[in-house]
Design a protein around this nucleic acid. Structure first.
Lengths: 338, 338
DNA sequence: TTGAAAGCGCTAACAC
DNA sequence: GTGTTAGCGCTTTCAA
């Protein structure tokens, strides 16, 4: 244990605690000789000032809480890395929390992080039904990926991606490549992510005067529990489904598994576009067409917005930023010429 | 800001701070009526005790530091998630740090985490040249993935995987499938990961009386900066390389890119086995043969060992655990019959 | 330029 | 059962 404290340093350097404190904080009000004497003792003792005591006194912890669904989802991994990079650059640390989309877990994390007096929060909300305003008070918060519900929507900074536009592009691309009976496998549309991606799908069909067939719309969860079964259903011959739009990378994997199990080849038998671009999609066979989200950038941006609030003297109006997505056209969505 | 403190609660409930504290800590030394009165006030005020003040007083933060190379590497993502799950179950939080294999970044994180008085540390060391013993004192630490160097090796708990065995199996499998000129693309062998995986490769060749050709051994880094060039070199016709063993998932991607750019098909033109199993490998074409590491389990185990130390009254001898890996045989390593 | 002292919010020994 | 008090390690007036 690092049991050396400021008093021991002070004593050994024959100065007062205040002077040591001033040296630690590079105060100019210390005679250079005194300062170097103190610094020598600090080095000799290997003294590490307690950020915990400092935090209590200063009311800041240089720590921010990051609440995501699951860091194993590559979307969040990228975001977390982006957040951490900016945080680190500004001498902040991040506490990582995984909710698995459970509001109760989120609530628990929130309480703990608040108790630990984090300086700010970045949250991918588990649902629009949650009320954050009462619990959070005026702690700086940036919501990412999903718009929080109720009053929270107007109270906090939010960074989103253009889910609807991305879905629209993806489905439009399939239509333009000759696919007509396009299915969608998506997650819960309680959250904004799900509902917007579904809307983009519907809008694209409507824009091209294609009928919306509810049987081709499979709504489950984004965690992959339901996707395999949904894919199997869409792949049944009677569905005559000729392309599938999957609403995230986890659902894609289940769908790939279903394709394999049904011995259906993509794009020969069926077209496929996914939301979420992954590094391997460029190199596998077929190369997968996907909607690329700026995950890393979402993280850096979120942290930068948080830093802005943290350093701001006055409060200012919350902002909402919607980042563009990009359709990476590859092979899985290109109908082979017959 | 959550400016409500214990005194405000005490005042409003007409009791002393101690009584409130006792209620918070579920002490039996409080009359039930008093307790419920206090609890009512706590709820009314939305009081959240400051873990920072508590931490200062109790000398514990219920936080542990996790230092990995890069959470974007799926190997570490899995580990981090494993750590977090166990930590959460035991009311701990984790602070996530990415070193990018830079000892200076690691050193910086270490100092910060120590200052923040984390209760323990889980570290994937950036190199065996680092000395942890002096800086860390007797804080509980578990090293993961790489054995720390010098005296640290004997001083701390360590969780490793059977790198040498995994490589051996992978290369042996290639040999048994008829490949003879097997190249390896690996990362720095300064760390134990690199050197052990290289050794496994050499051992397998030796075991089957195959010559070790230094030209087929490409040592770069595990971050993927050098792998593409190395793959291109191995793929030159004059190398007559008929299979490649790549030492992690990032190197694999670069190699896949090189294969594509050289228009070489796997396994038709060349066999491939990777260290690190990824979820998509089961469903792409060809399905990739890979050495699966128990990443999640490494995380849970590391955190469990840490908890054991944290709750132990006495110090006990450090343990080293080497976890087995499993070769997942798929298509990329099966020589097609000519 | 330096030191003495108060206090951040909590817990625990000790008194009653 | 409950309150008083000291103190965890730091910063910051205020005084000198």
């Amino acid at each position: 244990m690092n049991q050396i404290n400021i008093s021991m340093v002070a004593q050994k350097a024959q100065v007062s605690n205040s002077t040591v404190s001033r040296v630690l904080n590079n105060s100019p009000l210390v005679r250079p000789e005194t300062a170097s004497k103190v610094r020598a003792v600090i080095a000799e003792l290997g003294y590490q000032p307690s950020e915990i005591a400092r935090g209590l006194r200063m009311n800041e912890t240089k720590t921010i809480g990051v609440i995501v669904s699951n860091v194993l989802n590559h979307f969040f991994t990228g975001m977390v890395r982006g957040i951490e990079d900016i945080a680190n650059k500004s001498a902040y640390n991040i506490v990582l929390c995984n909710t698995d989309e459970q509001p109760e877990k989120e609530q628990q994390y929130l309480k703990t992080l608040l108790s630990k007096r984090v300086d700010g929060l970045i949250i991918a909300s588990t649902g629009p039904q949650n009320d954050y305003s009462t619990l959070i008070g005026n702690l700086p918060v940036v919501f990412v990926d999903r718009r929080p519900g109720g009053r929270s929507a107007e109270m906090f900074d939010t960074i989103l991606v253009d889910n609807k536009g991305g879905s629209f592009q993806a489905v439009e691309h399939l239509i333009q490549n000759g696919y007509r009976r396009i299915g969608i496998i998506t997650g819960s549309n309680v959250g904004t992510t799900g509902s917007e991606r579904l809307q983009g799908y519907k809008d694209a069909l409507a824009a091209y005067d294609l009928p919306i067939d509810e049987k081709l719309i499979k709504i489950g969860d984004f965690l992959g529990h339901t996707a395999y079964q949904h894919a199997r259903e869409l792949l049944e011959p009677k569905m005559k489904c000729d392309a599938i739009f999957v609403a995230n990378n986890i659902i894609l994997l289940s769908t790939m598994k279903a394709l394999r199990d049904c011995n259906r080849k993509c794009p020969r038998d069926i077209g496929l576009v996914a939301f979420d671009d992954m590094d391997w999609m460029e190199y596998c066979t077929p190369r997968f067409t996907a909607v690329a989200q700026p995950t890393y950038q979402m993280g850096t941006l979120a942290m930068e917005m948080l830093l802005e609030r943290l350093s701001a003297k006055e409060t200012f109006a919350p902002k909402t930023i919607v980042l563009p997505v990009k359709l990476e056209v590859r092979d899985s969505s290109i109908r082979r010429k017959d």
